[in-house]
Amino acid sequence: MNKDSPVGLQSNTNLLSYYREMQRIRTFEDRVGELYLRGESAGSMLHLSIGEESAAVGFCNAMTDGDTFTTHHRGHGIFLARGADPNRMMAEIGGKEDGYCRGKGGSMQIADMGLGHLGANAIVGGGIPAVVGAALVAKRRGNGKISVAFFGDGAMQQGILYESMNMAALWDLPVVFVCINNQWGMGTRIDQATKATKLHERAAAFGLNAETVNGLDVMDVIAAADRIVEGARAGTPGFLAVDCFRFYGHGRKDKSPYRTEEEETVGRQKDPVKFAREALIAQGHDEAELDALDKEITEEMDATIDFTIASPEPALDTMFQDVYAPGQPVPEPVRSRIERVLARE
C-alpha cells in the first residue's frame, strides 16, 4: 500500500522497537483470542485490536510516567503500549486472582493506577469525561502531566464526548482525545453512523488542536502524537483520529457477515505491523533477525496463557470486598441474611 510519510521510516532507528511493541500487541491479541475460544477466558465478550497497533504504540510513545488515560472496550493494545504486564493482563481477562483487578474487571474494566490507567470501559464513551477531571487536577498541581481518553469511532456519536471536549477547551486543560477510527462500530460502518466523517473537524470546532492521521505507518502516528501532546502539555487540548481498520469481527466470535470479503481484503491491506516489517527490511534488517524477534514475542505471549491457567480463581469471599473502602459498613450477604431472618423461634 502506498503511503506518503512526512517523517520517513528509513531514517528512523527506533522503528525496530516500535515494530516489536506492535508485534507484541498483535501476538497478545492472538493469544487472548485463543484463550477465549478454549473457554479459559471469563468474559463472554472479547474485543481485539488487531489492525490498530500503530494507534496504541504511536500515541503512547508521546506519553510519559505520571500521564493518565482511560480506554474503551478495545483497549488491550493501549495498555500494553503503556507498559502493562501481559501476564497480569491475560490473567485479568481470564477472571483470575493474579489479574490486575483480581478477576473483577476483565477485558473491558481493566485498570492499573501504577501505570496511570484510570480504566477501560464497557460503556461507549463512558471513560471520556474522567480525563477532564484528571487533567483539571494535573493543571491545578502544575505537574506537566496530560490525561488521554482513547476511544473508537463509535464514541464519536456519543454526547458525552462533546461535553468533555467543550470543557477541556474552555478550561485549557492538558487533555488529548484519541479516536481510534477502525471504521466499524460493531456492525455499523462509520458512514452508516454519521454524515460528518471528517472526525477531527468536530474537535476543531470546539477549539482543540485536531488532526487525522493514517495509521498505516506508526511513524506518522508518532509524529502527529508528538505535535498534539506538545500542545496539550502547554494547555491546548488536542484531538487525534487515527485511521485504521478492524481486521476481525466486533467480538472474537463475530464473523462480520455485515461486510464483504472484498471490503475485508482491502481493509487489511492497511496493516501497520506488516508495513513496519517491510520498512525494516528496506532499512537493511534481515528476515532471520525479525523472525527471531517474533519468536521471542511468541514465547512471551504463549507464557501468558500458562500463567493464566495456573492462576487461582479468586476466593468466593472476595466477592464482598471493595464495594466500599476497607473498614466501611458492608452489605450483608443475601444467603446469611435469609438464614438469619428464617431462624425464628
Binding site: T68, L118, I128, P129, A130, V131, V132, G133, A134, A135, L136, V137, A138, R140, S147, I160, S164, M167
Partner: peptide
Amino acid sequence: GAAVGAAMAGM
C-alpha cells in the same frame, strides 16, 4: 464524569 476523574486523580 469530571468529578469522577478528579477524585481518582487525588482531589
